[in-house]
Nucleic acid binder design. Structure first.
Length: 828
RNA sequence: GUCGGAGUGGCGGAAUAGGCAGACGCGUACGUUUGAGGGGCGUAUGGGAGACCGUGCGGGUUCAAGUCCCGCCUCCGACACCA
């Protein structure tokens, strides 16, 4: 046994032993209950960063803890390995293929993950860029296609010039920039593949209620993203034409206040309305200017509202009034019907617009205790009130009016109830090489033809040229492009777009159950055994990306009969970022701390311990080199505590006979068992690993103190303390605990032991310190028997001489005893 | 603007159900061990000479408030003309 803690030697030793012993292998159908612990798999960008270390350290504690608690834990790892950086590297350097670049990175990062001692079952590793995986990504695409959930349409889509590809709405973030590279996104009119996620809007929203184990924050973000809105559809006939303009409104009670109608510039009706009119030219150039701007600028709140009269009029179906039809930049074609009824008196946007263009303002809702005038009001009255100026509906409240007006419209065939969602369909095609090819063929005779399942995978060709042209290399690859039609056998062309990598990551957690399955997407019995994921852990940045897409996929898979769960992830933990000097670590800021260096200088145990100790998992974590030193010191301290005792303890039982113990021995046992309880609760109820670690530190401090004061009398007490200490620390610092476990004569791996159980009797305090307050201020602390009743406490406290002194000559109003805590004496 | 989250010593953070604010760690100071460096060990460490005062600010509820209620401020994050 060495007298110095040599993390290098020790970590290397155990890595080898664990690997050859298949310590972390988990079978498909064990006898123990199953627990699926999953962390979001990484993109193999090169090397691990601290965010990864944090994510995976948290997951590893959960996995090891659950294993020790008697579960069969599925704890897999893999790679989200399609994506742009690989292709960009190829374009930039020319001599490296994305596949090779990716493989190299995977090898590096896998090695790093192993060094950190994470308990993955590596036999289950998957990589989304592997043909054995993306074959099934393509197969799933076909299942969606066959159900009518994958379709092609021409639409104005988000285009990132830097990535040279389109993006889904969820991938445009912040001020309208690309989620990946933060470049401003443009609009382009292109023909693209979409998934009908909007068909699932209702279920995605309603089932958020099933997710009791998710942070409220994430559910609120998804709720808002889906954006359900209940309202009324109303049809306004166009004057002198057979056309009609449909609008969606949540305020049908304000319909008598309509003074104009607005269409989005892209609305197809615009062209029909302006045809042959004098305004036609001006409207066309306005429309093309506005729609080119893209949603970013256009939907920004500061953008000035602009509009133009089309020359057409439409008729309010309720009062028969004729109002002008305009086009305006503030109306979005993609939302609702792409048309809005203008009610300036009761909608702030309409109000601003009307004031700017001199359109009339007509009040139709009366506020409860206020008189408004159309000329004098300075903002719209958007609250509810009593309808007036509204014909037969006068006198109704807004609430009642909404219902009554809608019923009336429905009866007359002029409209009806309608639910609208903000969510749009998921754009999944990407104009890039390094992704799963969309398994579709275009045939001059047969049109769009899906590749038959038995011809999957559609392999990515390896020999293509990577040039900075912004065009997919697949377009220049005749071997790939030219094919024959699966239906008629004639000449046909392949789809050259590849799939959004979020599609690859929407189902990987199912594949882990059957990673090498060649004949089907997965073995259903295995999926049933493990899913849903009991604990999912990852960054909150995926709140409406990966997490929404995965929920959508799961619902589709459920409908297809491929899985039996409605939701993929029962419990979700979103960890905070790792910061240095208050900012996110980044190369440009030069504040990056590399996990490699930390592992080299201090070892994996220190790295893990620090990251778990420095902050609770959901919060951001401020990196501190000194904090790392502190954790390293702690492990050294642990080493110096256990090693000298090891030989003495190794032959000794930890079964303590409760009789004949000294006060100190009872105290030691109390601390041991209290710590077991504390850590068990901290991990299982709250994920408060930071307080768990601090409790372990306290136990170490306690053992030191006990050892000094007590020599080696009753070694069972010491053995019990040390043994439990190692078991409790094992999920956090797997290497050093394994080494010390061996040293104290532990049988088998520490990681295969049962989680310790606390003994209530050993834990119980005999005396507690309670506080004596007078009028809520602390005056005295005394020790008192734990068993003392409230009555006894009060009496005992009042009998204290110092208290007698304090309350002399005063009238006791009330005495409030709180057993085990305090006694408060209220005096006057 | 709307919706979330946070604000506690010199620093990271603790206080789990309204009951001792500051656990644990870092830093700092002093002492000790050592030939020295490093490391270890020990003591102290919110402020104030003190009665006392202290959890972003101002009110409130309560015997008792970091914790509950009302009104603000600051920071971070998400969404942002959604009809």
């Amino acid at each position: 046994m060495k007298d110095r803690y040599n993390h290098h030697e020790l970590e290397e030793k155990w890595l080898k032993k664990w690997e050859t012993g298949d310590l972390y292998r988990v079978g498909d159908f064990g006898e123990r209950p199953g627990f699926y612990c999953l962390e979001m798999f990484p993109y193999p960008s090169g090397k691990l960063h601290m965010g990864h270390v944090r994510n995976y350290s948290i997951g590893d504690v959960v996995a090891r803890f659950k294993t020790m608690q008697g579960y069969d834990v599925l704890h897999p790892m893999g790679w989200d390995s399609f994506g742009l950086p690989a292709e960009n590297a190829a374009i930039k350097h020319g001599d490296i293929h994305p596949a090779d670049w990716t493989t190299e990175n995977i090898n590096t990062m896998r090695e790093q993950l192993k060094q950190l001692g994470f308990s993955y079952d590596w036999r289950r590793e998957v990589a989304t860029s592997h043909p054995g995986y993306y074959k099934w990504t393509q197969w799933l695409f076909l299942q969606l296609y066959n159900r009518g959930l994958a379709y092609r349409k021409r639409a104005a889509v988000n285009w990132c010039t830097s990535c040279a590809t389109v993006l889904a709405n969820e991938q445009v973030v912040g001020e309208g920039v690309c989620e990946r590279c933060k470049t401003e996104v443009e609009k382009r009119e292109l023909e693209q593949w979409f998934f009908r996620i909007t068909d699932y809007a209702r279920r995605l929203l309603d089932d958020l209620n099933l997710l009791e184990g998710w942070p409220e924050k994430v559910k609120i973000m998804q709720d808002h993203w889906i954006g359900r809105s209940e309202g009324t559809l109303i049809k306004f006939p166009v004057a002198g034409s057979n056309e009609e303009i449909a609008v969606f409104t949540t305020r049908p009670d304000t319909i008598f206040g309509v003074t104009y109608m607005v269409l989005a510039p892209e609305h197809p009706l615009v062209e029909k309305l302006i045809e042959g009119k004098e305004h036609a030219g001006a409207v066309r150039s306005f429309a093309s200017r506005v729609s080119r701007l893209g949603e970013i600028v256009r939907t920004s709140a500061d953008t000035e509202k602009e509009g133009l009269f089309t020359g057409a009029y439409c008729i309010n179906p309720l009062n028969g009034e004729t109002v002008p039809v305009l086009v305006a930049n503030y109306v979005l074609y993609e939302y609702g019907t792409g048309a809005v009824m203008g009610v300036p008196a009761h909608d702030q946007r309409d109000f601003e617009f009307a004031r700017k263009y001199g359109l009339p303002v007509r009040l139709v809702i009366k506020p409860p205790e206020k008189e408004l005038g159309p000329e004098t009001m300075e903002e719209a009255y958007e609250e509810e009130g009593i309808m007036f100026n509204s014909g037969i509906f006068d006198g109704l409240t807004s609430g009642k009016g909404k219902e009554t007006v809608t019923d009336y419209l429905q009866e007359k065939g002029l409209g009806g109830r309608r639910v609208n969602y903000r969510l749009r369909d998921w754009l999944i095609s990407r104009q890039r090489y390094w992704g799963a090819p969309i398994p579709i063929v275009y045939c001059d005779n047969c049109g769009v033809v899906p590749v038959p399942e038995n011809q999957l995978p559609v392999l990515l060709p390896r020999n293509v040229a990577f040039k900075p042209t912004g065009q997919s290399p697949l377009a220049d690859c005749p071997d790939f492009l030219q094919t024959s039609c699966p239906t008629c056998g004639g000449a046909a062309k392949r789809e050259i777009d590849t799939m959004d990598t979020f599609m690859c990551s929407s189902w990987y957690y199912y594949r882990y159950t059957s990673p090498r399955e060649e004949n089907k997407v997965w073995d259903k019995a295995k999926v049933n055994r493990w899913l849903p994921v009991n604990q999912y852990i990852g960054g909150v940045e995926h709140a409406v990306l990966h997490l929404l897409y995965s929920r959508f996929f799961t619902k589709v898979l459920y409908d297809l009969g491929l899985v039996e769960v409605m939701e993929p992830f029962t419990n979700l933990l979103t960890q905070g970022m790792v910061l240095k000097d208050g900012a996110k670590m980044s190369k440009s800021k030069g504040n990056v701390v590399s996990p490699e260096d930390i592992i080299k200088n201090y070892g994996a145990d220190t790295a893990r311990l620090f990251i778990l100790f420095a902050a609770p998992p959901e919060r951001d974590l401020e990196w501190s080199d000194q904090g790392v030193e502190g954790c390293y010191r702690f492990l050294n301290r642990l080493w110096r505590l256990v090693v000298p005792l090891a030989d003495n303890l190794s032959g000794i039982s930890d079964q303590v006979l409760a009789q004949d113990l000294t006060v100190e021995e009872r105290q030691m046992r109390r601390l041991t068992h209290q710590t077991i309880k504390k850590i068990t609760d901290d991990i299982s109820d709250r994920f408060n690993f930071n307080t768990a670690v601090s409790a372990i530190m306290e136990l170490v401090n306690g053992i030191y103190k006990y050892k000094e004061e007590n020599g080696n009398h009753k070694p069972e007490v010491l053995k019990e303390a040390v043994k439990n200490l190692l078991l409790l620390l094992a999920p956090f610092a797997p290497f050093i605990t394994e080494e010390l476990w061996e040293a104290i004569g532990g049988k088998g791996s520490v990681h295969k032991q049962s989680w310790p159980v606390y003994d209530l009797e050993a834990m119980a305090e005999e005396e507690v310190e309670i506080v004596i307050q007078v009028n809520g201020r602390i005056k005295e602390r005394i020790r008192i028997n734990t068993e003392a009743s409230a009555q006894e406490m009060s009496e005992y406290v009042l009998a204290q001489p110092r208290i007698q002194q304090l309350i002399k000559g005063k009238q006791i109003i009330k005495v409030i005893p709180v057993p085990g805590k305090l006694v408060n004496i209220v005096v006057k």
